[in-house]
Design a protein around this nucleic acid. Sequence first.
DNA 1: ACTATATATTCTGATATGGGAATATATCAA
DNA 2: TTGATATATTCCCATATCAGAATATATAGT
Lengths: 132, 132
Amino acid sequence: MPRAATSSDVFNAVAEPCRRALLDCLAKGEHPVGTLVETTRLAQPSVSKHLRVLKEVGLVATRRDGRQRFYRLNAEAIRPMHDWVTTFERYFDHQLDRVKDRAESRQREQGQRPPSGRTARDTSNPKSGRTR
Amino acid sequence: MPRAATSSDVFNAVAEPCRRALLDCLAKGEHPVGTLVETTRLAQPSVSKHLRVLKEVGLVATRRDGRQRFYRLNAEAIRPMHDWVTTFERYFDHQLDRVKDRAESRQREQGQRPPSGRTARDTSNPKSGRTR
DNA sequence: ACTATATATTCTGATATGGGAATATATCAA
DNA sequence: TTGATATATTCCCATATCAGAATATATAGT
């Protein structure tokens, strides 16, 4: 028995790069298929097929308008994967601080970057580099 | 061209439930293959093969001791996936607070769970891994 | 050297996958 | 209706994937 069907498991659905690309596009907002075809530069049938998979696992939802079909992200469906992945955060280097920072800065709703005075702090110590 | 080889892409390597199970085991510490076979109840060759994939994508590392081979998690390799997934956090319901909480509580380094006051919230994922 | 243990590799077969091409469906416009 | 546009579906094929069985390799103990 091969791995869980790509069309029933979020991990699998997302394992395909094209589908991640599609989700990335949709993260920016709702889009009709045509737009997605353009931005991803994939063949239209390909896009439709990938979107179908994404829809089957609940990662996207659709709305119809005339002959266009708008797709939008349903982020909730990513949560199982998110939960699993974050389980490992504790093993990342210095990840704790960064996770917190990320959350906070986002909560600050796009804060203004502090003046030039920016000494060390933690903007990646020149040494570590590791920030990626 | 099918999706990126399972043995070269973290997303793919992790798309397989058995491999997630193995990673879950290894998150608890280093283990020889035998132990993993027991806990996962998978056939030994299967385990070896899955471990190989995990090793190829850098998710695990090994150490040899006598005839045993110990595997350990290399969480850093999950980071690409982690980064991608967390990109979507902003679209989760009320996720912002929870992300921050998670980070903070962890920073408290396994603190004592706060008093009963703790409503709902972290009930998050009794199910997390184990999609298997 | 011989045997047992721990793990890895190879082979096979059933099944899934994704791309491309062709075609189908739905909707709008004239 | 007819035609054009937007999207979905079907078919075929090359390839990848996984499980299972058999076998290989390495190491330890005697």
